[in-house]
Design a protein around this nucleic acid. Sequence first.
RNA 1: CGGGGCGUAGCGCAGUCUGGUAGCGCAUCUGCUUUGGGAGCAGAGGGUCGCCAGUUCGAAUCUGGCCGCCCCGACCA
Length: 610
Amino acid sequence: MYRWSKLFIPTLREAPADAEVASHKLLVRAGYIRQLGAGLYNYIFLGQRSLNKIIAIVREEMNKIGQEFFLPALLPKEPWAESGRWTAIGESMFRLKDRKGADLCLGFTHEEIMTTMARSELRSYKQLPQIWYQIQTKFRDEPRPKSGLLRVRQFIMKDSYSYDMDEAGLDKSYNLHDAAYRAIFTRCGLKFVVVEADSGAMGGSQSQEFMVYSDAGEDLIASCPVCGYAANLEKATSLLPPLEEMVATGDGKPELVHTPGCAAIPDVAAFFRISPACDIKCVAYMALKRGAAGKDGAKKDGGPESWHGVATFLRGDHQVNETKLAGALGAAELRTMQAEELSRYFNGPAGYLGPVGLKVDAQPLGDGLTVVADKALEGRRNMVCGANKLDYHLRNVTPGRDFGWTLMTDIRSVNEGEGCPSGQDGKPCEGRLVVGKAIETGHIFKLGDRYTRSMGARVLDENGREVTPVMGCYGIGIERILTAAIEQSNDANGFWLPASIAPFTVVVTITNVADAALRETGEKLAAELESAGLDVLLDDRDERAGVKFKDADLVGIPYRINVGKKVTEGKVELVTRARAYSEDVALDEVAALVKRRVDEELLLEAVVAK
RNA sequence: CGGGGCGUAGCGCAGUCUGGUAGCGCAUCUGCUUUGGGAGCAGAGGGUCGCCAGUUCGAAUCUGGCCGCCCCGACCA
C-alpha cells in the first residue's frame, strides 16, 4: 500500500510562469512532471504511474492483433539512406556520429528499421500477414516544442507496422488497428473523433487520425454536425455555393484597368464593387524538391536538393493550405518567395501578380514556373486578377481561356460554414462545416509499398512469384493520451482522470492523523480497498485536512474517501472528483461501493470499446 | 529561422529606469499552539542575481557578446 507520507509527490500551489495550457500547468502542479529542457520532461511518480496504466491498456489491446517487439532507439544511417529519408527528413531528425565517425540517428519513427527485419526474415506468403509493434521512445527535433507534453522532443510512442500480401490484406490490418485504437481511446476515457487525414507527399492511399477536441490542440478539424463527416483541415473539402459572375465588359476579353493603390484584396474588391470571391489572388512559393531513392534502393543518399518557383492562384477569399499544396507538388518544403525571386519569376510587383501571360511549366517543379490553380477556379468566368503591372488589374479573366496552369487541384483550406462535401445516393448532405481545434492522439496509415519496395522486401506468393508486400504504419502518442484526458477534465482546483488511467483510483484521506481511531480506521479501510483490487493511496500525512483535500482535488484521482468525525457514527464521506459530489456512506459498505462504481466505469468503457 | 517576452532562494514575484554590496509571499527546518478546505505565533536555513567580458572606487542594476526558457509567426504581398 502506498502511503502519501512516504512518497515524493511535489504539488505546487502555483503553476510555473511559463506554462500556458491547462494540462501543462496541472501536470506540473500535481507533481506528475518537471521540465528538464525545451520539450524534455522528467516524469515523476504519479506521472509515470499514469503513463504505465495507459501503456498497459495499449499493450493489452495491441496484443489482440499483433506482437510486441522492442527495437533500438539509436539507429544506423543505412536503412534511412535506402528509403531516401536520411535526406528527406530534414532537421527534425537528431543525428550523431559514433567514435568511428559512422552516422547514426535517434529514432524518429521505425518504418525502415522494422522493414529491415521484414525483408531479411519474411520469405513466403505463408508468413503473412504480420503485425509488429513496440512501445518506445521517439526523438524529434521539433522547430518549436510547446504546451507541456503536447509537443516535445522526446516522447513515448506505440508504433506498429503491418505487412500483407496485397491491398485486401492491408485493408484488414488497417481495420484491425482502427478497431484496436477505438478500444484503446475509449478505455482511456477519451471523447475522441476519427477524422480523414492527409496521407502526405510520400504516397499512401488512406489515413485516419484519432482526435480529441481541445483548444490546446494544434490541429484543425472540419466536421459536419448533420452526417458526421470529419476531416483534418489538411484534407477537408467542401461544397461551395454557386456564385454570380461579373458581367463581361467590352469584347469580353481581358481588359486592363487602372487600380491605383489597390494592392490588397479588400481594396481590389472595393474598387470593382465585387466580392473577393470574384478576385483571383496569387501566393508565390519556392518549393524544395529532394531526390528520392531509386526503386531498388540503389541510390543510397537520394538525389540533390533543388528549389523551384511555384505560383498558386485561388479565389480572393480562400487560403492556401500548404500541406495540400506540398502534397500536390511532391515538395518536401515550401517557403514564400522573397522579393528578388518574385522579380525573377514575375514581371510585376507584389500585390499586382496575376496568372495571365505567365510562362507555365508543363511538369511540376521544372526549371521555370510551376503554376497551380485551385479547383475552386474551375468553371469560373470574368474574374479580376493582378496585371503583373504596378497599379493595374485585369478584368474579364476566365480561367482556362485566358491563362493555363501546370496543374489544377484542391489546394485551399475549407472555411467554417461551407457545405459538407459528403452525400448519399447522389444527394448532397445539407450540413454546414464547423471547424474546431483538436489534439492528435493516434494516426493510422496505409503506406502501400513505399518502404518495402525501396528497401527491397520480397516474398513468394502461392505461385512462387516474387511480390512486394504492402505495409501499414500506426502510431499512438502515449503522453498525449494523458494530456488530452487532462485537457478534457479539469477545473481551477485540478483535474480528474478516468479510473483506467489514473495513478490511483481512490485516495483515503485521514483527516486528522493525531486521532488514533481515525488513523486505524483509515489504515483498515485502505487495506480493504486494496484487497478489493483497487489502487489505493492512503493520505496519512500529518497535515491539516484542508491541505490534504486540496492536494487530493489536484492530482487526478477520481475517488476520495474522507475518514473523519463521522466515523463515530460508522460513516465516511465518498467524494467523486468529476462531479465534486460528496455522499455519506457506511464504513463497512464503502469499499464495495467504490469497487462497484469503478467496475461499472471500466465495464462501460469496455462495452463502448466493442 | 523571423518577431516579442523573460532569466534574482524550490515556486510565484519586487528591486534594474536613477550603480552603493539583495528583499517579499508561499514552500522548507525547529519549537509551541492548532487539526474538515492550502492554520497562528516565534525563530532558523537557503541565492556564483543565467554565463562571460567590459565600464566603474563599487555592477542584480550600465555596455557588449553568448546561453537558456516561453509565446507568436514562419501562408494572402
